[in-house]
Design a protein around this nucleic acid. Sequence first.
DNA 1: TCTGGGGTCCTAGGGCGA
DNA 2: TCTGTCGCCCTAGGACCC
Length: 432
Amino acid sequence: MLLLLFNIRDILMFALVDCNNFYVSCERVFRPELNKKPIVVLSNNDGCVIARSQEAKNLDIPMGAPAFKFMQFFKQTNTTIFSSNYALYGNMSNRVMNILSSYTPEIEIYSIDEAFLNFNNVNPLSINKCGLEIRKKVNKYTGLPVSIGFANTKTLAKLANTIAKKYQKKTGGIFIIDSEETRLKSLKWLKIEDVWGIGRKSAYKLKKIGVFNAMQFTELSDDWVRKNMSIVGLRTKHELEGKPRLDLEADELKKNIATTRSFDKEYYQLNDVRERVSTFASSCAKKLRNQKSTCNSIAVFVSTNKHTSNNDQYKKSILIKLPQPTNSSIELSKFATQGLTKIFKEGLKYKKAGVIVMDILVEKGSQMNLFNSSNTKHKSLMRAVDELNKYYGNRSLKLGSQDGGSSEKMKQEKVSPKYTTNLKDILKVNSK
DNA sequence: TCTGGGGTCCTAGGGCGA
DNA sequence: TCTGTCGCCCTAGGACCC
């Protein structure tokens, strides 16, 4: 009977599925003895904290905390430390997304640990049941816990998800904003700095005029928000008001692809930096080939250590237009190192560099320049290199100009095994 | 000694041609 | 021919996200 009260065809509903403390949860799947214990995962180079278990959050370990400053504290509090293991996290993420895709073809993989799903026109009475089923299935097949938020706009779904995660026990990990009363109550609860789309700067500006929660933000005039926070802020305001302004985004080619790294130590010599830049360019080329695309321009940057207080700070980038679109490691490495030579200044201590490829096109549609046709041998060579690296492990085969030492030249002292992507790391189960 | 990396979108401002 | 204006395009930088 109840179903007759509304028209199911007009119901908009987004679900946001988010893995709880994703990197930490991935590590715990293979180390269950660490459940309920404080864990942190560190960034590349073991630089700073990028993921924390709830127990670590309870110890007030901040996000982004420099690891070297907290080592003593980690020891004192028995906090387990992991270096980031992106091979493992990427693989676990794929497993979760595959499960989610079985519920609807309309899915936007927003990041490694979360996805928006379209639940339009699903019977509202079955939403909760559906959420429970997704949670159960993801946990059964991957061992990962997820929270799910449902609402008629993406921003409200994000808010619903925050509530589901924060009040796990009360909500069972699922929260639905399906009435005006729930929406207003949720907006009053949400601190302004926690609104999706409002960052540090805007939150500071809003607090100065007495806006401390999402509800107060929606009470501002559209004109004020447009003028002070651009079209982006206005979009967020409307979304919080329950007026959809954001749709699911199609899975398209990336517009930029970057490989940038801080170095394990400071480099003085052009040759050392050149090796790194060549490696980064090769990595970008590989990513281009993976998504079957080519690029038309490439940018290279170098910088000194921004955390030191000396006067020799230097940061410079250069953009190079390519004569023809390419995804060849050889060509990109050649142009990147040429660019580097132009911006490299002698006598400085370099701590970071990167390569970004831009103007990305689908490989088939790439236009060849009449006078500078790309070396066609590169295509088959790159295919062979990719095949061999796939078979023998990444970076088994590389360019002569790339660095020959440890694969990433990064500090990674606490990295866990690649349980799901490397046969030699697979878990052994003893049966008696 | 040690403080990440990889994206997107928007805006302001300069160059340039009509 | 010179100058002002407008709109388009490009780029750098800011702000945001995970």
